[in-house]
Design a protein around this nucleic acid. Structure first.
Lengths: 343, 343
DNA sequence: TTGCCCTTTTAGATCGATCCAAATTTATAA
DNA sequence: TTATAAATTTGGATCGATCTAAAAGGGCAA
């Protein structure tokens, strides 16, 4: 790279000492106004570019936070990053973003790489299957960290997420209200904490409504659109009588809806579907998706704020934050919010 | 942050000099095997974490590349980042990712921030409206840079993209083949280079097929799903007789398809639509989207490779690379590739 | 003028890894 | 064995901004 000009050059050009220039760059109130102007002008004229590596080395702080998510292709996380950037943008911190695609090795590599960069803090969506031993390095360094969306057992690191159990429960309450006698959860990795929470929410609703647990089943293995599409095919083979579908997330739901549309089955009328997340897409699917609003951007924002407060006040005793979420009724559940389309 | 242990500590523990430890960490072949083992063991035992800031300061290279895109929420760019990571992952370089949301100020901030971090190189999707003066800083520093997907006039920086003009032309050829007498381009920012290229492709096809330019019109202003949805509404009001639609991209196309589906208009039969990009979504929309395959991941990969060769061999005379693209025929154009669904 | 306090500026040490040239050890040839 | 080449190892300077503690400058009262 270029950038041959450094503090000393500016100092010479402005006729002051390096220390003074440094103070100016840090916007310190110690330096006299006239001097500040002079220095800034010199810096500008010489085309100076701040060297963050040098500053970081000396001051032991990088002005960067690391963000590790599963995939930027997932609209949920895309929205989360917007919330994060809102926080760190105004704070003047850069975001180092990485995606692990739910691969534990990649995740490890990313964490190490970010620790090497001496990020001021980390926000991590743990990859599927992450256990305490996978984040040992992280815990040892005591780097300020916040987990997003997934917990890791046995690790004392605050977790920000939404109340999936409650969300799933409310969704199922609504499906039962629509007269469903069997609930099917489609998509999601069986065994993952997120999947488990959905199951728990379903059971909670069952208990409250006096339904037997046998009425619950689970189909599909991933959280992609294709998984939803395939799951719907399977369900159609099995028969849809009394079935109400809770999708792992909106993406899965949209895949299932596509499959039903294609087969000429009227979603909402013949089979109700409820999603989770309330991604932008949910409004545009037809029929529009009834879903659990989880406010991904809000989650990002909250996670960012939490990390900041840990960094700044070392609130290491800070507890988990679970954001409330609520049912957004559109059409895929069968509630007739709009006149039926003609088709 | 933590990480109190440094090279000197390892050196002491292993009974060698700092220089030797440094060589080991760099995987230098100069150091004897036995020594290497010893040092690595010490580093491991002490829980050493490499300090990239220090290394970067001394060696004037950061092992990081900056990537600036418009939005991670756009699936096209999400796929591009996968291609990039494939390249830089094996090269051992971290990716510093930023999104400017087509805001010039944010873009400027991101560029400066990355230059401050002394990235080894930059890959930038210029924000809409970027002119030479907006990237002056960048040009002055002579940082290795590659533009992606959009050009900036008057700046000598290599550009990687796909042959949109040709793609649009082929798409229109196909629409004309289906008997369309009027071509409408929906979505995209009027005045942007990308929009202009699509128009040019359309005109090229017109010339070749002896069609008058009056047969071309343009509707919509953005490249979102909603823009496509709205544009379709407008077109339905105006009447669809003879209309063939070229969408700015697949997202816009999917919005339009949703609107038509809702109105009971059979896409493909009553109005053909062709998209551009061939994002994963294109396969799942119904009817499946006929589109111009632009291989976003390939574009990312190529851009990454190009940047690497600039960094490594200083191929500053390197020219633009325009990737070929081709028409992928599915159903939205009216070609009856599948039995018609029952509905 | 001197003394005191407050504002502003500064020299020099420092962060931790890398580079260089030179020193040391080991291997090979004569 | 000694000379010579090759393989390893090393001390000390260095990258550029920041920190600390202390110096310099200015204002004002006595």
């Amino acid at each position: 790279m270029s950038g041959k000009v450094n503090l000393k050059d500016i100092a010479q050009h402005a006729g002051v000492s390096r220390s003074t220039v440094s103070l100016v760059l840090q916007e310190s109130p110690l330096v006299a106004d006239a001097t500040r102007q002079k220095v800034k002008a010199s810096a500008e004229k010489l085309g100076y570019i701040y060297n963050r590596a040098a500053a970081s080395l000396r001051s032991q702080t990088s002005g960067t936070v690391g963000v590790i998510i599963s995939s930027v292709g997932n609209p949920f996380f895309a929205e989360v990053t917007l919330g994060l950037e809102k926080v760190f943008g105004i704070e003047g911190k850069s975001v180092l973003l990485g995606q692990h695609s739910d691969d534990l090795v990649t995740q490890e590599r990313l964490i190490v790489s970010m620790l090497e960069s001496r990020v001021d803090g980390l926000i991590i969506v743990p990859a599927y299957g992450t256990e305490a031993r996978h984040v040992g390095r992280l815990v040892n360094t005591k780097a300020p960290t916040v987990f997003l969306n997934r917990k890791v057992n046995g690790v004392k690191i605050p977790y920000i997420g939404s109340d999936t159990i409650y969300g799933a429960k409310v969704a199922v309450d609504h499906l039962l209200f629509h007269g469903c006698s069997r609930i099917v959860l489609i998509g999601g990795r069986i065994g993952s904490s997120a999947h488990g929470e959905r199951l728990e929410g379903i059971r909670k609703s069952f208990v409250e409504n006096g339904i037997s647990v046998e009425k619950l089943s689970s189909v599909g293995e991933l959280s992609t659109r294709k998984a939803g599409y395939d799951a719907a095919q399977i369900l159609m083979k099995r028969g849809l009588k009394g079935v109400g579908i809770l999708a792992y997330n909106d993406i899965v739901a949209s895949g299932a809806i596509a499959a039903f549309n294609e087969a000429g089955i009227v979603v909402g009328k013949e089979v109700p579907i409820i999603g989770i997340d309330d991604v932008e897409l949910a409004q545009y699917v037809r029929p529009a998706l009834t879903t659990i609003h989880t406010d991904p951007m809000g989650i990002g924002y909250t996670a960012g704020q939490t990390l900041l407060s840990i960094i700044q006040h070392d609130d290491s005793k800070l507890k988990n934050i679970i954001l409330e979420n609520e049912l957004v009724i559109r059409q895929s559940c069968g509630c007739d919010t709009n006149k039926e389309k003609i088709k």
